[in-house]
Amino acid sequence: MDGIAQEQASDWWEVEALYDLCFAPGRSALSSYRLRDGVEPVAALCLVWRDPDAILGGAIRVWPVRVGAARVLLVGPVAVHPTRQGEGLGAFLIRSVVEKAAASGEERLMLVGDAPYYSRFGFDRLEGVEMPPPTNPERVLGIAVVPGAWDGVQGPVLRDLD
């Protein structure tokens, strides 16, 4: 699926508008947004997809966080424009992030989402990893990009200010 690129500064407002369209207006009140405040995203893993006419169809961002002493990448939000949903674009963006994270040497990724959807990409429920409330623990999912990377990683998820 051609059309994927790293998000550029010039894409920011358009991506924000897509997130506003796809999510509730109060999206920034979610606990995951508190982890992003004052933290720069992982630029190499923030991706956009545009059609041949350069119209934004989807976007995904990734943020560094900490669980104990472990660096973890928090995936999301991922959004697909309503006119492009059902085409596999969201899955393409998620797979692309997992592949690029692995290629760049990252060890583990996490997200908050529906296990039945994200399990097909290798994400499983994380036991002992605590997102800020009111996050449902059943929705805290992770994938070990490096086998065993989640072994022994537990505790609250905190902003990574390094």
Results as ranks from 00 to 15, higher is better:
residue 3 G to Q: 11
residue 5 A to Q: 09
residue 5 A to E: 01
residue 5 A to D: 07
residue 6 Q to N: 07
residue 8 Q to P: 10
residue 10 S to I: 14
residue 10 S to N: 15
residue 15 V to H: 02
residue 16 E to G: 01
residue 16 E to S: 13
residue 16 E to Y: 12
residue 18 L to H: 00
residue 18 L to P: 11
residue 18 L to N: 07
residue 19 Y to V: 09
residue 20 D to K: 13
residue 21 L to K: 00
residue 21 L to C: 07
residue 23 F to G: 05
residue 28 S to K: 14
residue 28 S to E: 11
residue 29 A to L: 10
residue 30 L to I: 01
residue 31 S to P: 10
residue 35 L to E: 03
residue 36 R to H: 07
residue 37 D to G: 09
residue 38 G to P: 13
residue 41 P to K: 13
residue 41 P to S: 11
residue 41 P to M: 12
residue 42 V to R: 04
residue 43 A to W: 09
residue 43 A to R: 15
residue 44 A to F: 00
residue 46 C to Y: 01
residue 47 L to I: 05
residue 48 V to L: 11
residue 51 D to N: 15
residue 53 D to C: 11
residue 55 I to C: 14
residue 55 I to D: 11
residue 56 L to Q: 07
residue 57 G to R: 15
residue 57 G to L: 07
residue 58 G to Y: 10
residue 61 R to F: 00
residue 61 R to P: 08
residue 62 V to L: 07
residue 63 W to I: 03
residue 63 W to V: 04
residue 64 P to K: 05
residue 66 R to T: 03
residue 67 V to D: 05
residue 70 A to K: 14
residue 70 A to L: 04
residue 72 V to N: 01
residue 72 V to K: 02
residue 74 L to G: 08
residue 78 V to C: 13
residue 78 V to I: 14
residue 79 A to S: 15
residue 80 V to R: 04
residue 81 H to K: 09
residue 82 P to M: 01
residue 82 P to I: 04
residue 83 T to R: 05
residue 83 T to A: 13
residue 84 R to K: 04
residue 85 Q to H: 10
residue 86 G to H: 06
residue 86 G to P: 02
residue 87 E to F: 08
residue 87 E to Y: 05
residue 90 G to E: 09
residue 93 L to D: 09
residue 95 R to Y: 10
residue 95 R to D: 06
residue 95 R to V: 01
residue 96 S to A: 14
residue 97 V to L: 04
residue 99 E to S: 12
residue 100 K to P: 00
residue 102 A to M: 13
residue 102 A to C: 14
residue 103 A to R: 14
residue 105 G to P: 10
residue 105 G to N: 06
residue 106 E to Q: 10
residue 108 R to A: 06
residue 113 G to T: 12
residue 113 G to M: 13
residue 114 D to Y: 14
residue 116 P to M: 10
residue 117 Y to A: 07
residue 118 Y to Q: 05
residue 118 Y to G: 04
residue 119 S to Y: 03
residue 120 R to K: 09
residue 122 G to I: 05
residue 123 F to S: 00
residue 123 F to N: 03
residue 124 D to V: 15
residue 124 D to R: 12
residue 125 R to K: 11
residue 127 E to D: 14
residue 128 G to K: 06
residue 129 V to I: 10
residue 129 V to N: 02
residue 131 M to W: 08
residue 132 P to L: 08
residue 132 P to M: 04
residue 132 P to G: 01
residue 132 P to R: 03
residue 133 P to S: 12
residue 134 P to E: 01
residue 138 E to H: 15
residue 138 E to G: 11
residue 143 I to K: 06
residue 145 V to Q: 03
residue 149 A to Y: 00
residue 152 G to R: 06
residue 152 G to Y: 11
residue 157 V to G: 01
residue 158 L to R: 15
residue 159 R to Y: 06
residue 159 R to V: 06
residue 160 D to F: 12
